[in-house]
Amino acid sequence: MAQKREEKILSVTNLQVSFGGIRALDGVDFSILEGSISALIGPNGAGKTTVFNCLTGFYRPSGGSINFKNSQGHSLNLAALFGSLPFSWNRDQLSTYFKYLPNKFFGGTHLVTRAGIGRTFQNIRLFKELSVTENLLIAMHRDFRGTLIKGLFFPKIYQQNEKKQLSKAKYWLERVGLLSLANERAGDLPYGLQRKLEIARTMCVNPRLICLDEPAAGLNPAETEELSSLILSLKEIDKVTVLLIEHDMSLVMNICEQIVVLNYGQVIAKGTPEEIKNNPKVISAYLGTENV
C-alpha cells in the first residue's frame, strides 16, 4: 500500500512553451505522486494555466515531455497522442506513430481526457444554456456507446442505458449538493455552485488525475470550506489524484501534500507546505525582494 503511493502518475520534464517571443514555460520539471493532492502556485502570469493547457493537450509544447501513467500502468508520452513523436524505425514506436499520425492534423485533445486527465477552467466553462443534468450527461457520452440506432429508434432500450447514466448523474449531484437544482439552466446557478458543477462534470468522465484551475476563485469563505472538503473527498472516496492551481494560500496549505512554485515560466521551488512557506525565493517572488 505504502509502496503504491510512491508511484508517480505524472512526470513533466523540461517543458518548454513559447508564444512568439515570450517564453511562457522555460524548462519546467516536476512530478506528482499517485493519490496525492498537489498544488501549482505562483504569481499572476507565471505560466500555471499554460502548464495545464499542455497537460490536457490544448497547447503543444515546443520542447520537453509529459509522461502520464495510464490505467494499465504503462507510461504514456502525451506527445504520442498528438502524433508529434519523432519518427523512428523501432517497431513498437512505429505502430503508435502511425496510429496517432492523423491527430497531428486534426488534434487529439479528447484523447488526453480519455487517457485519464480531466480538467476545469479558470473562467468557468459550463454549457450555460443546457440544464445541470445535461451538463453531466454530456460528460458521460463515452460510458454507454454504440447507441445511435438504439437511441434513435429504440427509445425503450436506450432508456435503460440512460438509467445508469442518470444514476451516476444523481450520485454526483448529491455529492456537490445540486440535486434539487437538477433541471435548472446551468448558467443560472450562483457562481459557487457553477464551480462545483464543473468539478462534478469533470469527474463524470472518470479521470484519474483531475486538474483544477483556481477552483476557489470568487468563492466566499464558507464556500471555500465546502470546496476543500469536496477536494479531499475526491482523493479519499474516488481515489483521484488532484493537481490544483490556487491563489488562496490557506486552502493550499491546508489540503496539499506537495507544492510546486512557478515564476516567469520556471520552477523556483518544490516541496511540502512547510518547506514552501519558509522558502526565501518564494517569499521574494510573491512579495518582491526585500531591501534591508
Binding site: 490536457t56 493537450g57 490544448f58 488534434g107 485533445t109 479528447h110 484523447l111 481526457t113 480519455r114 480531466g118 480538467r119 477552467f121 466553462r125 459550463l126 454549457f127 450555460k128 444554456e129 443546457l130 445535461e134 450527461l137 454530456i138 460528460a139 458521460m140 457520452h141 463515452r142 454507454f144 456507446r145 447507441t147 445511435l148 437511441g151 434513435l152 436506450y158 462534470r201 469533470t202 468522465v205
Partner: peptide, 23 residues
C-alpha cells in the same frame, strides 16, 4: 435526447469544454 445529439449541443455551447470532456 441521445448522447450523440447532446455532443452537438455541447459543441454549440463551448467547444473547448467539449474537448476537455473527451468529445
Amino acid at each position: 435526447k441521445i448522447a450523440i445529439g447532446r455532443s452537438l449541443l455541447a459543441l454549440r455551447e463551448d467547444e473547448i469544454a467539449c474537448r476537455s470532456l473527451g468529445i
